[in-house]
């Protein structure tokens, strides 16, 4: 198996700080985004991201290349840390207090409508079962290849597709009015 991070990991294992810095630059955004999609909280996502990298430093000397991609292992660690935190919360994630919008100063009606829709989609995603949310975060938002996503979630490809299909269907059902509008827009766009 060709692991794009293989060389970096072996250099980190012998204490090369530059290699570790490269690994951070290469993966920090995706790990942080994945944790944020799962937890709906940017600060908690930062804690998870930090823990993932601390585990990377510890794991590097023991890493056996050829069995899995290191990035897949990082995704699995991140998702498991998110599952732990969600379990500890024992409550549904608060979508209202979740991720900040890219532009908080929306005034025009189109922009207001877009913000409302975004908030509803975010809330609906937050209500999905954890594993469906993780599958959608990996495959739709982060565009992780299917096999890697399945490995990160520790499921078969069939199970991954089932999680994705159920998640997408649930989202469509929860937001049927928005979906109808979008269906109209899709139709108009043809």
């Amino acid at each position: 198996m060709n692991d794009p991070d293989g060389d970096l990991i072996s250099r980190i294992a012998v204490g090369e700080a530059g290699a570790a810095e490269q690994l951070v630059r290469r993966h920090v955004k995706r790990i942080h985004a994945l944790a944020q999609r799962m937890l709906n909280d940017a600060h908690e996502a930062e804690d998870v991201t930090q823990e993932v990298f601390l585990r990377c430093w510890r794991a590097a000397p023991r890493w056996r290349p050829g069995q899995a991609k290191f990035e897949t292992w990082m995704h699995r660690v991140a998702i498991n840390l998110c599952y732990d935190r969600l379990r500890r919360r024992r409550e549904k994630p608060d979508a209202e207090a979740g991720m900040s919008m890219a532009d908080p100063s929306l005034g025009a009606s189109d922009a207001w409508l877009a913000a409302q829709r975004a908030a509803r989609v975010q809330a609906a995603l937050a209500r999905l079962p954890e594993r469906q949310r993780a599958a959608i975060a990996l495959c739709h938002f982060e565009e992780v290849p299917q096999r890697d996503a399945a490995a990160a979630l520790d499921v078969s490809l069939d199970a991954l597709e089932s999680l994705l299909a159920r998640g997408r269907r649930a989202l469509r059902d929860a937001l049927s009015d928005v979906a109808e509008d979008l269906l109209g827009e899709v139709g108009d766009g043809r």
Partner: peptide, 19 residues
């Protein structure tokens, strides 16, 4: 069209904050 609409729904989700 249905699959396109769900894709468009997902794409409405706000982008995560950068680290």
């Amino acid at each position: 069209s249905e699959a396109h609409a769900i894709d468009a729904l997902l794409d409405l989700a706000p982008a995560p904050m950068p680290p």
